[in-house]
Amino acid sequence: MSDPKTIDLKATFEESGIKEVLDQLDRELVGLAPVKRRIREIAALLLVDKLRVEHGLGSETPTLHMSFTGNPGTGKTTVGMKMADILYRLGYIRSNHMVTVTRDDLVGQYIGHTAPKTKEALKKAMGGVLFIDEAYYLYRPENERDYGQEAIEILLQVMENRRDDLVVILAGYADRMNRFFASNPGFRSRIAHHVDFPDYTPDELRSIAELMLKEQNYRFSPEAAQAFKAYVEARMGQPHFANARSVRNALDRARLRQATRLFETTDRTLTVEDLQTIEAPEILASRVFSGGIEAERVEPSK
C-alpha cells in the first residue's frame, strides 16, 4: 500500500516476446484449447513471478518441471518445444534447446552403465529443456533389478538440486503416467504443472491434414476432401489410432498413390495442377475402408 510504484504488466508482457510465441502456438496448432489455456496460465504465472523477483517479493526459482499427458500424436513434443521458447524468453532457461530422450537414452544395459548415460543426457539438456518421452518405461516394477530405478534417482536429484540449469518435461499416456506417479511419489511432488492433451475431433484432424498438405504444396480435390472426411471417421474407430501422426501417415500414403497414378497417366500431358492435387481414389484405396487397420501394416509407434 505504501509503495506508490506502479507496475506495467502489459509492457513487461510485450517486452518479453512471449506474446509472439503464444500467437504462434495459436496459429500453428489446431484445436488443443485446454492446452493453450494452460500454457497461457503458466506463462502468466511465470511472468508475474519474474516481476515479483524483480521487486524483491520472492527469490526462489519456481519449480518448472512439467508433465504432458495425452494419447500419441496430440502434439506433446511440439508444445514442449514451444514451452522451451516461452521459458527462454522469460529468462528461466539460458537457451531454447530441447533434448528429447526415451528410456533407451537414459538406462544402461549393465551395472555402472546407467549413471554415466543419464548424466550425459542431463548434461546435454542443461541450460534448456529435457523432454522424456514415455517416461513411465523408466520404472519397471516387475523387475526389481531393473536399472531404470537408478536413472530415476539421478533424475530426481538433478530436478531438485539444479532447478536453475534444467527443466524436465515428462510425457506419455495419461493412465500409465498416473500409475508411474503413484509408484514414484518423488516425481509427482517435484512437478509443478500437469498439462493434459485431449484427443482431436474429426474436424480438427481435417484442418490438420489441410495444413500439412498446404505446407507441402499439395491439396485435396473436392471429392478427395469428402473421402478424407470419411477416412478420418473410419480410422478413428480402429485400433492404433495416433491422432495427427495417423493423419500424416495417411497423407504420405496418399502421396505415394498419387505419384503412381501420375506415372500411369499416359493419355495426356500432365500439368502443375496434376502434381498438386490428391484425388479421391487415392484416399479411398486405403485399407481403412476395406477390413480395417488390422489388415494394414502396423504403424511404428514412436
Binding site: 539460458r94 541450460g127 534448456g128 539444479r162
Partner: peptide, 11 residues
C-alpha cells in the same frame, strides 16, 4: 554436443 556450460562446470 553440449549446449550450456552448466554440464561442464558440474563435471
Amino acid at each position: 554436443d553440449l549446449k550450456d556450460p552448466a554440464g561442464i562446470m558440474y563435471e
